[in-house]
Simulated scan of single mutants.
Amino acid sequence: MQDPTLMRIGSAISGLLLVLFLVVHLAGLLPALMAPVQFEHYATALHHQPWLPVLEVGLAATAAVHLSCTIAKTLQNRRAGNTSALRSRRGQPLEALASRSKLVAGLITLGFLTLHLQQLRWPRPADGLEREVLLQVLLQPINLVVYAAGSLAIGLHLLHGAEAAHRNLGLLNPTNGPSIRWGGRLLASGIGGGFLLISLGLALGGLA
């Protein structure tokens, strides 16, 4: 039988590592909206780094650990009839919505990630064409809808995950709970909203 403590810790730590990647990735994408030339220089330099394949393998492994631990923990909670987390969110409609929709948000995020990698990583765009390829992708309405849905799903997932990670690590208590929840809201809106802003901004700029 899988150790529930290890599953909780694995889910929390892998989730926090993925959040760190999202913050760095978002920071790297922002120049695509405001400074295209600088963005292409950054993308070209990044793609020629010898450590990039190692980082990508590490990210894939981290995502696999997070997904497997989260699924195992969710199934175990359902078998045990655990509803305490939902009861603790009464009076917190945003967090309750994020908790109830975490499976749907996770599936949307996984589908978006698969499409995103297929379009922009397998194969990679040629040097100097990263923004152009991304723009052409976003100018297709169905792709823009998927990218917008993926951004919103990431935001919802982070809204749930911020509190869940602290709970899984034993760091959530009645004293710091409100601060952690507000921090989770800021993180979710900043990252999810940031990716949504970039997608819509590039698409609208391309149409103009």
Results as ranks from 00 to 15, higher is better:
Asp3Met: 11
Leu6Met: 10
Met7Asn: 05
Met7Ala: 14
Arg8Asp: 05
Arg8Lys: 13
Ile9Pro: 01
Ile9Tyr: 06
Ser11Asn: 04
Ile13Ala: 12
Ser14Asp: 01
Ser14Met: 01
Leu16Arg: 07
Leu16Asn: 08
Leu18Ala: 15
Val19Asn: 08
Val24Cys: 04
Leu26Val: 10
Leu29Tyr: 05
Leu33Pro: 07
Met34Asn: 12
Ala35Phe: 10
Ala35Cys: 05
Val37Asp: 13
Gln38Ser: 15
His41Pro: 02
Tyr42Trp: 14
Ala43Lys: 08
Ala43His: 12
Leu46Val: 14
Gln49Met: 15
Trp51Lys: 06
Val54Ser: 14
Ala60Ile: 08
Ala60Met: 11
Thr62Ile: 13
Ala64Thr: 13
Leu67Glu: 03
Ser68Asn: 10
Ser68Ile: 14
Lys73Ala: 13
Asn77Gly: 05
Ala80Arg: 13
Ser84Ile: 03
Ala85Glu: 14
Leu86Pro: 09
Arg87Ser: 10
Ser88Arg: 13
Ser88Gly: 07
Arg89Ile: 12
Gly91Asn: 00
Gln92Ser: 10
Gln92Arg: 15
Gln92Phe: 09
Ala96Glu: 12
Ala96Phe: 07
Leu97Val: 13
Lys102Leu: 04
Leu103Cys: 11
Leu107Cys: 11
Leu107Tyr: 08
Thr109Asp: 06
Gly111Asp: 00
Leu113Glu: 05
Leu113Ile: 12
Thr114His: 11
Leu115Phe: 04
Gln118Pro: 00
Gln119Arg: 10
Gln119Trp: 09
Leu120Lys: 00
Trp122Gly: 00
Pro125Gln: 05
Glu130Leu: 00
Arg131Ala: 02
Glu132Ile: 00
Leu138Phe: 04
Leu139Gln: 15
Ala148Lys: 00
Gly150His: 04
Gly150Phe: 08
Ile154Pro: 04
Gly155Pro: 08
His157Ile: 05
Leu159Gln: 12
Gly161Trp: 03
Ala162Glu: 09
Ala162Trp: 14
Arg167His: 09
Arg167Phe: 03
Gly170Phe: 02
Gly170Gln: 07
Asn176Met: 11
Ser179Met: 14
Trp182Val: 13
Gly183Asn: 05
Arg185Cys: 09
Leu186Val: 14
Leu187Phe: 03
Ser189Trp: 15
Gly192Cys: 02
Gly193Val: 07
Leu197Met: 12
Gly201Tyr: 02
Leu202Val: 07
Leu204Lys: 05
Leu204Phe: 09
Leu207Ala: 15
Leu207Asp: 08
